[in-house]
Simulated assay, not measured.
Amino acid sequence: METFQLHRGTAPLLVSLPHNGSFIPVDITERMHPLAQVSPDSDWHVDLLYDFAIGLGASVIKPLASRYVVDLNRPADGHALYPGRTETGLVPTMMFDGAPIYRDGEAVGPDETAARVNQYWRPYHTALASEIARMRDVHERIVLWEGHSIRAVVPMLFEGRLPDLNLGTADGVSCDPSLQASLATQLEGQDRYTHVVNGRFKGGYITRAYGNPGQGVHAVQLELAQVNYMDEKTFAYDEIKAAGLKKILHPLLQACIGFAQAAAGASQ
């Protein structure tokens, strides 16, 4: 069974969309509360927001299944990414509004968790690691771009309204300082969207695990407030709003490619 889709490009940029999926197998859905069955906490439509990336030559990887099946941006051992703060786990048991995902008596046990990791988590990460290795064989350095989105207001996870654009580099550890500075400068150069660097969302497991500037892999996460491109209540994609956001995303990805390509120029 196919659990993810991978497009291999030629540019030194890999776009990963680990929460884009919304599919939930029937045997799992039947154990869920009705509101959870539609996977409301998916990173809705981020594949549409980044549909231009393939035209830039980027590789793109995205899952089919919902983060409710297993969260690809959490470590396989389930340890916390933000110790002391509320967060959802490897196999989430509650939605972002705090409501339970599963009906009483239908909790996911250790054996089922391990099975989901083997069926969904490992194939995605094997493909991700393999694509990074393939790209590094061709390019002196590459950029891994983690594309995410979330509702603008989620009291369980953060106070107030989330900034529109949330750039995360694991506090500068996951990429070269010059790349972070370049992207931050672009965000500061526009006045349409609010932004923050290494705020509430500093980068999840993938950014932290795969970002290795010393080995030529520079990872960046961008968490978007969904209100800027969709209806958060109906999950409907808003083409007009999305077009405005793409005008920001396009040059950000171009800057990543330019950063990576500069390494080849410097070594000649």
Rank of each mutant, 00 (worst) to 15 (best):
A129K: 09
A107W: 03
I54M: 14
L81T: 09
I206D: 05
S130T: 13
L14G: 11
P18L: 05
H7W: 07
D164G: 02
L253V: 00
G57E: 05
R116C: 12
P63F: 10
G78C: 06
I101P: 13
H79A: 10
E87A: 14
D97N: 15
G9F: 11
D104A: 14
E239M: 04
W145M: 12
V173E: 08
F201A: 12
T234Q: 06
P25Q: 05
R67T: 06
T234D: 08
L56R: 07
D137L: 10
Q119P: 00
D191Q: 08
L167V: 01
H19C: 08
Y120K: 01
G214A: 13
G21M: 03
R134T: 02
S130A: 15
F52E: 13
H19P: 13
L224Q: 03
S130G: 13
G147D: 05
L17Q: 07
Q215Y: 03
D238N: 14
P155M: 06
T29F: 03
G89E: 07
P75F: 02
V196N: 03
D191I: 00
F23Y: 03
W145H: 11
T194M: 00
R192A: 15
K246D: 08
H250D: 14
I240H: 00
G84Q: 11
P155R: 11
A107E: 15
A58F: 06
M94N: 10
A219P: 03
A209F: 00
K247R: 15
D238R: 01
L187K: 00
A262H: 10
V217M: 05
N20E: 14
F23Q: 01
V91H: 05
G78N: 11
K62V: 07
T3D: 03
V70T: 09
P92V: 08
E159P: 08
L90P: 07
A170D: 15
I24V: 12
R134A: 07
H250Q: 14
R122N: 07
G57L: 07
K202T: 08
A219T: 09
D41Q: 12
R208P: 01
V217Y: 06
A266Y: 01
L6P: 08
P40A: 13
M156I: 01
G172E: 07
V173L: 12
T10W: 01
G168P: 04
H125N: 04
Y120I: 10
P34I: 01
H148D: 14
H79V: 13
L48H: 15
N166D: 12
D41A: 12
R74N: 04
R141F: 07
H45Q: 09
H148P: 10
H250S: 09
G55T: 04
Y210T: 06
